[in-house]
Amino acid sequence: MKVLKIFIILILVISFSESKSNEVNDVSKNKILKNIRCLICQGQSVYDSESEFASSIKLIVDRKINEGLKEKQIYQFLREKYGDWVIFDPQLSKNTYVLWLLPLLLFLFGGAIIYKKIISNKNNKI
């Protein structure tokens, strides 16, 4: 077990020290486009669509990236124009607390049930 611990620590150290810069351009642009809903298409992202709306948005995103805006700022810009509906990644707000937290609460709840089931057995045996 000791070997394991040392090993993990070693890996952690190496991986943190090796953080490096990345090419932002196309990869992050596509990532952004995939997260924008094409509002006039049924459930498609802007990235997946060739509609008029989608191509305008693509140009806008291009322009905003060139202006130096970060991913989050571009989403914010579009949210102001079109509302939350336009971004596929719901931001944490009073509207989405339940959405984000309920699954996690259920996970904890499930864990508690299993824990109880095993613990009660331990007590019985002792």
Partner: peptide
Amino acid sequence: KDGTLGVEFGAYG
């Protein structure tokens, strides 16, 4: 020409 002004207004088409 490219529809980007429409986006500034929040237009769909």
